[in-house]
Amino acid sequence: MMTIRQTAVSFAAFLALASPALGQSSRSLGPSTGSVRIEQVQAGFIASGEAGGGTLRFRGRSYPITVGGLGIGSIGASRTVASGSVYGLRNVSDFAGAYVQLKEGWAVGDQGRGTVWLRNDKGVTLNLATRRQGLQLSLGADGVLIGFKR
């Protein structure tokens, strides 16, 4: 079992790695190279989990995707629909992989909203606006795996 101190140190290191994505603005990322829509279910009590899928639109084509992840900084449960822009995508194969996600948002009934930034090691960044339904408060970071449906 990890101690509280080990957990705090691990989380601080995670946020340090993730901070470049948080500091970005869509202007500094250049033009959008695609768009994405994701639907997922999230649940958590400090630690959180999420699973779902969606669609990547890139160079006039649609690609079905899967999304799953684990994180910290969430209490409650919600269904989330997120959509937004993709930046830095040069090849469709660069989209799949592990992302760091920084999130903030809330949900009470069907009135929830939030913002999510995700970035992978290939320089692909997602800036998503979220709509949530349920009862949840989120402020934290996650590791997210995005893949293509087969």
Rank of each mutant, 00 (worst) to 15 (best):
T3C: 01
T3K: 01
R5K: 11
R5H: 08
T7H: 07
A8S: 02
A8M: 04
A8G: 01
V9P: 00
F11Y: 09
F11W: 06
A12F: 09
A13P: 00
A18L: 02
P20S: 01
P20T: 00
L22Y: 01
G23N: 00
G23I: 01
Q24Y: 04
Q24M: 07
Q24R: 04
S25C: 01
S25P: 01
R27Q: 01
R27I: 00
G30E: 07
G30L: 09
G30M: 03
G30Q: 03
G30N: 05
S32E: 06
T33W: 05
T33A: 05
G34S: 03
S35V: 00
S35I: 01
V36G: 00
V36I: 07
R37S: 06
R37N: 07
I38F: 03
I38S: 00
E39R: 11
Q40A: 11
Q40W: 08
V41Q: 07
G44W: 10
G44L: 09
F45W: 08
F45H: 12
F45G: 04
S48K: 08
S48V: 04
G49I: 11
G49A: 14
E50I: 12
G52S: 03
G54W: 02
R57Y: 03
R57T: 05
F58I: 07
F58Q: 04
R59P: 11
G60I: 11
R61C: 10
S62P: 04
S62K: 08
Y63H: 13
P64E: 08
T66V: 05
V67A: 06
V67K: 06
G68D: 10
G68R: 12
G71A: 03
I72E: 03
I72G: 10
A77P: 07
V81N: 14
A82L: 06
S83T: 11
S85V: 09
V86T: 10
Y87Q: 05
G88V: 06
G88W: 03
L89G: 07
N91M: 13
V92W: 10
V92A: 14
S93E: 13
F95V: 13
A98D: 12
A98P: 03
A98W: 09
V100T: 08
Q101H: 13
G105I: 08
G105P: 08
A107Q: 07
V108I: 14
D110R: 15
G112Y: 05
R113K: 15
R113Y: 13
G114A: 13
G114W: 08
G114I: 10
V116E: 10
L118N: 14
L118Y: 11
L118D: 12
D121P: 09
K122A: 14
G123W: 13
L126V: 15
N127V: 15
L128I: 13
A129Y: 12
A129T: 14
T130P: 05
Q133K: 14
Q133W: 04
Q133C: 02
L135C: 09
Q136W: 10
Q136H: 10
Q136F: 08
L137Y: 15
S138P: 06
L139Y: 12
G140Y: 05
A141Y: 03
A141Q: 04
A141F: 02
G143F: 02
G143K: 02
G147R: 04
F148S: 06
F148L: 04
K149I: 12
